[in-house]
């Protein structure tokens, strides 16, 4: 496969779970080497789209392309050398150390029974350092907290040395500092990053490109300022969004319920509506 950041494309992607339509015809091309955020309400199809892009599920119709090739038809090992995937929750009590778990990420690069080479060990140590879990290296997986497990999983993905990194709600379970650290690291990574995110404020600050999904379709895509407008957010999330331009030129969000219990917030929303970006 080609070098450079991973190129993801979707062509008329459909995915059904039984009779339920989860994705209904998604066509997009994600900017290579940039950080794309997939946003949208619960059940809008973010996780499914990620899995189709990663080739972990076969589409009901349409194609997910990685570097121009159908990812579902490509061997897993070849895909894993280009692409790493971090699931939302990994529930297991397997008795392995953090270093052993991160070493799983070297699997696509080594022989089936070969011991890890110095090259593999380097990649593992570097990946642990980048996610701040080096000090946990010898700890056993079942003793980790939810947030620590999440960071170890990201380290495992980085140890794959991927050209593309797909993450399903990577900030879930993380405290504020680690959230910012992780998103900062992802946006500076230089590889293609696609992450499903719930916090719109963080998506606005860290992502280069956003795809807003609703009901299995793309509602808007483009720069955070293009996607996160108060009109779209009211339509998709049923919230009152106040959007200002932040000091870094990115949108700064304030979100309130559409029908607040008191009148105060509504008045405040009314006052600032003049500064809404559309």
């Amino acid at each position: 496969m080609s070098a450079g950041p991973a190129r993801h494309e979707a062509r008329e992607l459909h995915w059904h779970a039984g009779r339920l339509r989860v994705l209904g015809g998604i066509t997009l091309a994600l900017p290579p080497g940039r950080f794309t955020g997939l946003v949208g309400p619960n059940g809008s199809g973010k996780s499914t789209l990620l899995r189709l892009l990663a080739g972990l599920r076969a589409p009901s119709a349409g194609h997910a392309l990685l570097d121009g090739e159908d990812v579902a038809a490509t061997g897993r090992r070849a895909v894993a050398r280009r692409l790493a995937f971090v699931a939302q929750d990994v529930a297991t009590d397997v008795d392995m150390t953090v270093r052993e778990v991160v070493t799983l990420g070297r699997a696509p690069h080594r022989g089936r029974t070969a011991a890890p080479a110095p090259r593999d060990r380097e990649a593992v140590e570097l990946a642990m350092a980048r996610t701040g879990v080096s000090w946990l290296a010898d700890r056993s997986w079942p003793t980790l907290s939810g947030g620590e497990r999440q960071r170890v999983n990201v380290a495992r993905a980085l140890a794959q040395e991927p050209a593309g990194l797909l993450l399903d709600e990577p900030t879930n379970h993380l405290d504020v500092r680690h959230r910012l650290d992780l998103l900062g690291m992802l946006s500076a990574s230089g590889v293609t990053v696609v992450a499903a995110l719930h916090e719109l404020e963080l998506a606005a600050r860290y992502c280069d490109h956003l795809v807003l999904l609703d009901g299995g379709r793309v509602v808007a895509s483009g720069s955070p300022a293009q996607v996160l407008t108060s009109r779209t957010l009211r339509e998709v999330y049923q919230v009152r969004a106040t959007v200002r331009e932040g000091p870094d030129g990115r949108p700064d969000l304030r979100l309130d319920p559409l029908d607040p219990p008191g009148g105060g917030a509504a008045r405040e929303g009314g006052q600032t509506s003049a500064s809404e970006t559309t």
């Binding site: 995937f85 699931a87 392995m96």
Partner: peptide
Amino acid sequence: QLHAGQLDALAFGRETAAAVGFEV
């Protein structure tokens, strides 16, 4: 025994095993 590496990954779920390159 030949599948030992894959079993390590499978303990973390089919998805993770497939994501690190095993034809689960």
